[in-house]
Amino acid sequence: MSPVPLHWYLAVAFLLFVLGLLVVLSRRNLIYILMGVELILNASSLVFVAFGSYRGAKGLLDGTVIGTFIVVLAAAEATIALAIVLNIFGTFHSVRPEDPNLLKE
């Protein structure tokens, strides 16, 4: 029985990272951008856990703890960012990142 090689996990994580980056860069809607950030965070968390798991039990523990911190971070980020997005929508009636431009004038 052959275990799954580490590189497969890395490949999936990188693919997820690229997809997230593409979402962040190509979409023009703040909610989409936040979703892209979530994908990127998950990709990084996956890399942590995968590396940790392939180091053995102690490494898996560290990977799990760091992954948990990333989840905590993402949750905090999501709440704050979404509150900001809703506030922006309330003020500018738009969820596009280029619309809040009052400082330009």
């Binding site: 275990p3 799954v4 090689p5 580490l6 590189h7 995968a50 590396f51 798991s53 392939y54 180091r55 053995g56 039990a57 490494g59 898996l60």
Partner: peptide, 9 residues
């Protein structure tokens, strides 16, 4: 300590 072919813990 990482062995890519060892499999997950």
């Amino acid at each position: 300590g990482v062995d890519p072919d060892r499999g997950p813990a």
